[in-house]
Amino acid sequence: MVKLIVQRLIFSVITLTIVAIVVFAMTDLLPGDWATAYFGRWATEAGLAAMREEYGLNRPATERFAEWLSNALQGDFGASLSRNEPVVELISFRLRNSLLLGGLAALFTIPLATLLGIIAGLRRDRTPDVIISTGSIVGMSTPEFVIGTLLIWILSVGLGLFPSITLLNPDAPIADLLPNVVMPTVTLTIASSAYLLRMVRTITINVLTSDYVEMATLKGLPRARVVFRHALPNILLPTINIMALMLSGLLGGTFVVEVVFNYPGLGRALVDAVSFRDVPMIQAIALLWAVMYVFFNLGADLVTTFLDPRLRSLRG
């Protein structure tokens, strides 16, 4: 068990190293360096040279990467180009806000999607399944900004229930944020439930048509015991990994929703950073997301290994 955890950790570290290289490379090596990107059309030779000097852009990429990484490991991502404040300070409240949004969305999505997926699987091809499955295709297909826009139209323009866009600063207290987080949460829940739900449905159907569920029925066990004791664990185990993917999506893929509602989270900040070519900010946010992704996958792997008797004895 310990060995397994160590092994997984090492793999995660390898993955993160590659991620760091890719993130750095993508922001740093694309045509034009920060300086040209920053000044854009208004670049002057003198301005460029001064900036390159200031940020040490004339040094080799490897050297700068090493420095960036070692600083990042110590929690220092440099200063934002557009705001001239340390990136970490700019990020911290936005991270909190994004976690609030993603966490709330996950809180609704996971039980809702799992439940609906299992119901659809249990009632396969009957009315509940047809409704749930068709609904999930619609939910899955509709882009987040479309769902968001429709919600604004109905809930805030039409019914006046919630503020259509957030006008708060990132460091606003959570209590103030709450009314603003409702519609983004609903949007994310609709969009991400659909995927999880469809996966759960497929797994449910496979488990229900398995020999061991048929056997449990033929032993005369009540339907409830067949479903809850024999089928459910086998449905939920493979779902854990999918949930991890979904979680990292909810915490790291939310910029469209945050822009639609002007929600002061990481995604909104990222889009701004991209517009302003604010490279240190982009790097920090991208790395943060990748860390979350790797962390959730690692967690899911460990949880599954711990819960699944087959994996447990296979991997000792």
Binding site: T15, L16, V19, V22, G252, G253, F255, L270, W289, Y293
Partner: peptide
Amino acid sequence: DALLAIPGLL
């Protein structure tokens, strides 16, 4: 796997 850890839209 590492590439997939970075959101595609980003």
